[in-house]
Nucleic acid binder design. Structure first.
Length: 170
DNA sequence: GCCAACGTTGGC
DNA sequence: GCCAACGTTGGC
């Protein structure tokens, strides 16, 4: 009787998602009854491609507050639903409405994430900049505006060291 | 508030 | 297909 065992993903990727906390903060995510949310409103093709094609179930996410005081990585999340059409693009009343995107041929995609942990203290941009292990981080490069960015495993771990917390993704 | 770095749009 | 004009992002 051979029911196939679900195998844990052998290869996990790490990402950084940016959000302006005024629009949606990690506190908002923590307030969700299910601690889940859909990551809507991404309107950039490069980021869209990552959401639609690349980001996998179980991938880990650094949650970054942009345009904020302080600018900081404020916690982590897990991908719990892979890419599917971003329905906010279909709604004329939504701020992210895009008439070019149709339900039968959607332009924009999103994933669902679930909170892993809120860092007890945000890791500020200045702290990230001071960390030699993060010198190549995309976030810190000039003009790196991409709102969905790949993060290396080493960077993921370095951020956890700076936050002074255990990696909840293990 | 400024502005550099992009990305998009549209005339040609 | 080029590129100037324009809009947006987001750090400073």
């Amino acid at each position: 009787m051979a029911t196939k065992k679900k195998t844990a993903p052998t290869f996990r990727q790490y990402w950084l998602f940016k959000s302006e906390p005024e629009a949606y903060s990690i506190a908002d995510l923590a307030r969700e009854p299910t601690k889940r949310t859909f990551w809507d409103g991404v309107r950039n093709y490069q980021a869209r491609n990552l959401l639609r094609d690349t980001i996998q179930l179980g991938d880990r996410v650094l949650f970054y507050h942009s345009n904020a005081e302080p600018m900081a990585i404020v916690g982590t999340a897990e991908v719990v639903q892979t890419g599917y059409p971003d329905h906010t693009a279909f709604d004329p009343h939504d701020h992210h409405y895009d008439p070019k995107s149709k339900p039968d041929q959607p332009t924009w995609f999103m994933v669902d994430i679930k909170l892993l942990q809120v860092f007890p203290k945000p890791v500020t941009r200045d702290e990230l900049k001071d960390c030699s292990a993060l010198s190549d981080m995309m976030l810190l490069r000039r003009g790196a505006r991409l709102s969905i960015q790949p993060v290396t495993a080493a960077e993921w771990q370095a951020v956890h060291r700076l936050a002074g917390v255990k990696d909840q993704s293990i």
